[in-house]
Computed example of a mutant assay.
Amino acid sequence: MNDFYEQFVGRKDSRLYNYIKFLMYATSFIALVFFAIMKIIGFIIFAVIAVLIFVARRKLYVEYEYSFTNGEIDIDKIIDKNNRKTAANFQIRDIELMAKAESDFVKSSDFKYDKELNCYNNCNNSDIYSILTVCNQEKLRINFGPDKKFIEVCFSMNPRKVKTSLR
């Protein structure tokens, strides 16, 4: 059986992101003004501030991609549209539980996790699900925002561990 499904979770620019972008452009402009009037100290200060804001802005623009391939789930974190890092990679048959994050299934689970990963954007309108699993010898709780199709594909591969309703 050859199952494949991929979900991209983009993001919308928040007010904070737009404000930081404006600050970056404003400080760059001020640095250029200082450079034009030959005030090197002012130029250096504002140029450094602009570079620091640029780095902070890049860290704020985060998107996620969830892919399901033949029972293997990959969750990738995409920073500033070009740097991709794998946040988690595991088999659906090896999970302890997958359910809505606020469900009784997750709350009553006796699974003690070492680390919690939040792999969703705050601007998403989808429900947040939690996966309790062991990934690379580390017990994880992975919070993410899958769509219905992604949940259905996971349920078809492991119906005993994937819970699709609240109780």
Rank of each mutant, 00 (worst) to 15 (best):
K139M: 07
I151D: 01
K115Y: 08
D80F: 13
V106Q: 03
K115G: 07
F29N: 10
I75P: 00
I75E: 00
N89S: 12
I95Y: 02
Y25H: 10
Y113T: 06
K107G: 13
A36N: 12
I37V: 15
R141S: 03
I37F: 09
I30H: 06
M38P: 10
A26F: 14
I142M: 02
D147Q: 05
N89A: 08
I95Q: 00
K100N: 07
I37A: 10
I40A: 10
I40C: 09
L52V: 15
A101L: 11
N143F: 01
I128S: 02
N83C: 12
V51G: 13
F155Q: 04
D127H: 04
I41E: 15
I44P: 05
F90A: 05
V62S: 04
E72M: 13
K112I: 15
E116M: 13
T69H: 15
A50L: 07
N125D: 13
Q137G: 07
P146H: 03
V134P: 07
A56C: 11
T133H: 00
F105G: 07
L60Q: 11
G145F: 05
N125F: 12
I131M: 01
K149Y: 04
I79Q: 03
Y120K: 07
A87Q: 08
L117E: 07
A50K: 08
N158Y: 05
I37R: 08
I92F: 03
N124T: 15
C135Q: 08
L32F: 10
K107V: 10
S28V: 11
K107Q: 14
F35G: 12
Y113G: 05
K77S: 02
I45S: 05
K139I: 10
N89V: 06
S103F: 01
F35Y: 14
F111Q: 04
A36W: 10
K77F: 00
Y120N: 06
I128D: 02
S156C: 04
K148E: 12
R57Y: 12
K59T: 11
Y113P: 06
V33R: 11
E116N: 11
I49G: 06
Y66R: 00
